[in-house]
């Protein structure tokens, strides 16, 4: 269980309260600048809150020591830069640093994650020779390689093609099905509705709504959060969202 109470950081995030149980995928949505990344960074310990706190499985996330946090939490940044022309295999190995696991377990995780993200063929390639999409997959694999129970992913499907967007969200969903709590910041509301059990809608740093996608993705809430008029259209393949600017 993740309990966030009164979490604030100046005006970027104000008085956010959440109670999210493990074993589900939760989408964090909102317009640009709504505070999605800031919220995830606060939970990841990258930013220090000005007030409030967060507790995960009875551990205070803001006062936990880095080693404990490492075992509990995986954070995937919007963009991870690899600064040296090391191989994919080496980057994966280094991303397992400080994980309290046996060597054979770590090797197993590496093989499993490489296969999951389709990196087996790329293992010996320098990261500087990869395409944007391949690099993004390496970044995701590096973030998820530790099998931690709390996963915070900040726009993990940005710059991925349609197939890899779906595959990535399916992998995150699979982690949630296996018992992890996955918080994922997303811009694609249709995918958020499809993959997430709950959505957290932020607006100007404040929590506007939290609940099941059908409740949160209502016309009025989306209009308030995104300043657009949204129409949900049902068709033979499913549901599509048609956004319109309010001035249209």
């Amino acid at each position: 269980m993740l309990e966030v109470s009164g979490l604030s950081l100046e005006s970027r995030v104000t008085n956010v309260n959440l109670r999210l149980s493990a074993g589900q995928m939760v989408g964090v949505i909102g317009a640009n600048g709504a505070g999605k990344s800031t919220l995830l960074k606060l939970l990841a310990g990258l930013l220090t809150p000005s007030s409030g706190g967060s507790v995960w499985q009875q551990l205070d996330l803001h006062h936990i020591n880095p080693s404990q946090r490492r075992q509990q939490l995986a954070y995937i940044a919007q963009q991870t830069l690899v600064n040296e022309a090391v191989t994919v295999a080496y980057a994966l190995q280094v991303s397992q640093v400080n994980l309290a696991q046996t060597k054979s377990q770590l090797r197993h995780y590496r093989q499993q994650t490489s296969a999951e993200f389709g990196l087996t063929e790329l293992l010996q390639r320098p990261v500087t020779d990869l395409s944007g999409g391949e690099l993004k997959r390496v970044q995701l694999a590096c973030g998820l390689i530790g099998q931690q129970p709390l996963i915070l992913a900040d726009e993990p499907i940005a710059s991925l093609d349609l197939r890899h967007q779906l595959e990535t969200l399916m992998l995150l969903k699979q982690r949630a099905d296996n018992g992890a709590l996955v918080l994922v910041a997303l811009h694609d509301l249709a995918l958020a509705a499809r993959f997430c059990q709950q959505l957290v809608l932020l607006h100007q740093g404040q929590l506007l709504a939290v609940g099941e996608p059908a409740e949160v993705l209502s016309k009025s809430l989306l209009q308030q959060a995104y300043q657009v008029e949204v129409e949900w259209v049902c068709h033979q393949h499913g549901v599509a969202m048609l956004p319109r600017l309010l001035t249209d």
Partner: peptide, 21 residues
């Protein structure tokens, strides 16, 4: 040596890898 090896990543990522930065 572990901290030096992790320097292949950007500082934000390193900050989540469990080091006493």
């Amino acid at each position: 040596r572990r901290f030096l090896s992790a320097q292949i990543f950007d500082d934000a990522t390193i900050a989540t890898l469990g080091f006493q930065l």
